[in-house]
Design a protein around this nucleic acid. Sequence first.
DNA 1: CCTTGACCCTCCAGTGACTGGAAGGCTTAT
DNA 2: ATAAGCCTTCCAGTCACTGGAGGGTCAAGG
Lengths: 129, 129
Amino acid sequence: MNIGDVAARSGLPPKTIRYYEEIGLVTPARGANGYRTFRDADVHKLAFLGRARALGFSIEDCRALLHLWEDQSRASAEVKEIAQHHLGEIERKIAGLQEMRATLSDLVRSCAGDDRPDCPILESLAQPK
Amino acid sequence: MNIGDVAARSGLPPKTIRYYEEIGLVTPARGANGYRTFRDADVHKLAFLGRARALGFSIEDCRALLHLWEDQSRASAEVKEIAQHHLGEIERKIAGLQEMRATLSDLVRSCAGDDRPDCPILESLAQPK
DNA sequence: CCTTGACCCTCCAGTGACTGGAAGGCTTAT
DNA sequence: ATAAGCCTTCCAGTCACTGGAGGGTCAAGG
């Protein structure tokens, strides 16, 4: 299977698939014409990667998860630890963004948003909080 | 004032301040020895930038906000629009992360995390959802 | 057989917002 | 005189791609 078909099946753009090859996440075979030739296993790997990335796992997390996936005898604890760590990071990000949202929505609410120049948003940014 | 003092007062690292000069957000004077010499106005600008960045505004948003801040006659509506747009982005990010968190925390909860190899996390990533 | 269009290839550069480090100059205190 | 601690510039790296240039390959239609 050529890269275009794989892209359609895995949902990843061809450029991303080439990039994943470059960094060693997949190693498709090559045809006589130099085209990448993907086997089913490669396609599965890429789909796996797409789903893991969609859950926000970093490339290095994905690499680790792929190894664990291919290791029949790994302990589920290893996987769980990566996932839990990542979950923690997501929760920290959410908390940070929620704080931003709270501050910013207060500011937006307090700003008239009309033709006059007085603006509590700028005033707050100017103020040493 | 030299860059180190400004860094201490504004909370921004010296490297970041130099970078902000490079991209034209501040333009400190220079002393005879080539050192950057910051005036109070520069320090205020940098503190403003620090607070805007802490609220997640992009550099280009910050540039626009700075201009509006220095424009005595701007309408507060202009500021409010930038802030509202950014607020929308924050809310979209929060929503995306919350979805990730939901999926991931389900997976983490369903994984025993012991010595055995069965792992619902990997199974789910492998499955064409 | 030739052309057209849709693929595919590699390589290089850019994104955002810094951050680290090398190599060197200046200042202040001992 | 020298050491520590500033400051300077410039270059490279981060993360995970993405865009584009320049060129090769393949299948279908005329």
